[in-house]
Computed example of a mutant assay.
Amino acid sequence: MKKKLLLTITLAAGVFALSACNNGDVIVESKAGDITKEEFYEVLKDRYGEATLQELVYKKVLSDKYEVTDEEIEEYLVNFLKSYYGEDSYETVLEQLKANTDQYNSMIQSAELGLLQEKAAMDGMEVSEEELKQQYNYETKTVTARHILVNDEETAQEVLDKLNNGEKFEDLAKEYSQDTASAENGGDLGVLDPANLVSEFKAAAFELKEGEISEPIETEYGFHIIQATKVEQKEDVQSYEDMKKELIEKVKQSKLTNDVVQGALDKLVDNADIKINDSDFKDLFKQE
Rank of each mutant, 00 (worst) to 15 (best):
K59I: 10
A173E: 04
E118C: 12
N164T: 00
L6C: 13
L5T: 15
K168H: 08
V150K: 04
V26Y: 02
Y84E: 12
I248K: 11
V61D: 02
A120F: 04
Y138W: 08
R146P: 03
V269L: 12
A195I: 04
E220K: 15
L172P: 05
D280V: 02
K98G: 05
T101Y: 15
A272L: 02
I226E: 04
V143R: 07
Y104G: 06
R146L: 02
I217T: 08
N79K: 15
I148F: 00
N22W: 10
L116S: 01
E167W: 02
K119Y: 03
M125W: 10
D242L: 13
G124E: 08
D280P: 00
F206L: 09
K60Q: 12
S128G: 07
E95T: 09
L94R: 10
E158L: 15
D88W: 11
S63W: 10
L160R: 06
M125H: 13
D64Q: 15
L53F: 08
F201W: 03
A183Q: 01
K162T: 00
Q178F: 05
L197Y: 05
I226F: 04
L163P: 02
E72S: 05
D64C: 06
G187Y: 02
K230R: 13
N22D: 11
Y48L: 06
I226D: 00
E288C: 05
K59C: 06
Y84I: 12
D280K: 11
E170W: 07
K65P: 01
L116H: 02
T144A: 09
I217W: 07
F169W: 00
D161G: 12
A13M: 10
V43L: 12
Q54A: 11
A99F: 06
Y240F: 15
F169Y: 08
M122L: 13
N151K: 13
N277L: 14
E200K: 13
K141N: 02
A173N: 00
N165P: 06
V43W: 06
K286P: 00
N196D: 13
E154H: 00
K65W: 06
E167S: 13
E184M: 10
T52K: 10
T229S: 04
T69W: 07
G24P: 01
K4S: 12
Q287N: 03
L11V: 11
K209P: 00
F206T: 05
N196Q: 15
Y76D: 11
E170F: 08
G190I: 05
E72W: 03
V150Y: 07
E184R: 14
L189Y: 09
N23Q: 09
E55D: 09
L189I: 03
I35P: 06
N137H: 07
V43Y: 12
N105S: 12
D161T: 15
K60P: 05
A51H: 09
A99P: 01
R146H: 07
E212S: 03
L284F: 00
E232Y: 12
L113G: 07
E71T: 11
V28W: 14
L189P: 00
L56E: 14
G263D: 10
D46Y: 15
M1E: 14
E235S: 14
E130K: 15
L113P: 08
A205I: 01
Y41G: 02
D70K: 15
E112F: 08
D70R: 15
I35D: 00
N151P: 06
E29S: 14
V127N: 09
A272V: 05
Y41W: 10
V198L: 08
G33K: 01
D242G: 10
L18Y: 04
D25G: 02
K282E: 10
G222T: 01
L18I: 08
L7T: 14
S199N: 07
